[in-house]
Amino acid sequence: MIKSRLALCLLLVVLPAFEIVGQNAKEIALVIKVTGGAQIKSGADAWQPLVNGRRLNSGDIVKTEEGAFVAIAFTDDRSILKIRSKSQFQLEGERGELGIKKRLLMTIGQVWAKINPKGAGYRMVTPSGVAAVRGTEFYTIVDADAKMTVIGVTGAVSVFNKVDSVLVTPGKTGTVERGKAPLLTDTVDFVPWADDDETADSIDIEFQDANGVKKKLRLKYQK
């Protein structure tokens, strides 16, 4: 009797939730850049090559190959994700009245996220912990042992698991391993890479020196 009530309750709660996700989970993000090999699996479809302009629905799985780079923009507030090679993640989101509530389920790889503070929120879920943000810029690395490393760039990131939580701020690194309390340390020896792709905010100026040799000057500017 209790089991059947439980099942009914579950059905009543979960079914509408599925319905909402189905209706509001289309085109939550867009692939704005692909370099190298990357693939997507959408629903029951087979893996397909990921191309520029591809619309991403909630539940789509993306993996990047060696040397690949993928940039994704969320369609509600232009929050950006940049994913490096040899990464795999599943994108989830629900389009609500205040925007898309975003979630990235990452099993392995490296991602840079710049989340619009005016958006409806973003969570990054890994096997060892969760990073929750409202608006900030940070890097996340998930290694083969599911160890999650969060490096703060701007704003603050709440990194937590069942054991404890830490707040990662600029210059700090949060590390989480399965079943262990998150650790907070100073960031050392980390080279930011998000600006090194073609979408970086820079301009190249070519000029010739007195000997007619062409040289290139790269100016980076800050917004």
Binding site: L30, I32, K33, A73, T75, D76, D77, R78, E94, G96, E97, L98, G99, K101, R103, K118, G119, A120, G121, R123, V125, R134, E198, T199, D201, S202, I203
Partner: peptide, 25 residues
């Protein structure tokens, strides 16, 4: 996970890419 507050309603149009004044190859 989907229950955060605040946010703003979406504008009618939002340019996702290119960024304003972005310099592209």
């Amino acid at each position: 996970l989907f229950a955060q507050e605040s946010g703003i309603p979406s504008p009618p149009f939002l340019i996702l890419t290119p960024e304003q004044d972005q310099i592209l190859p």
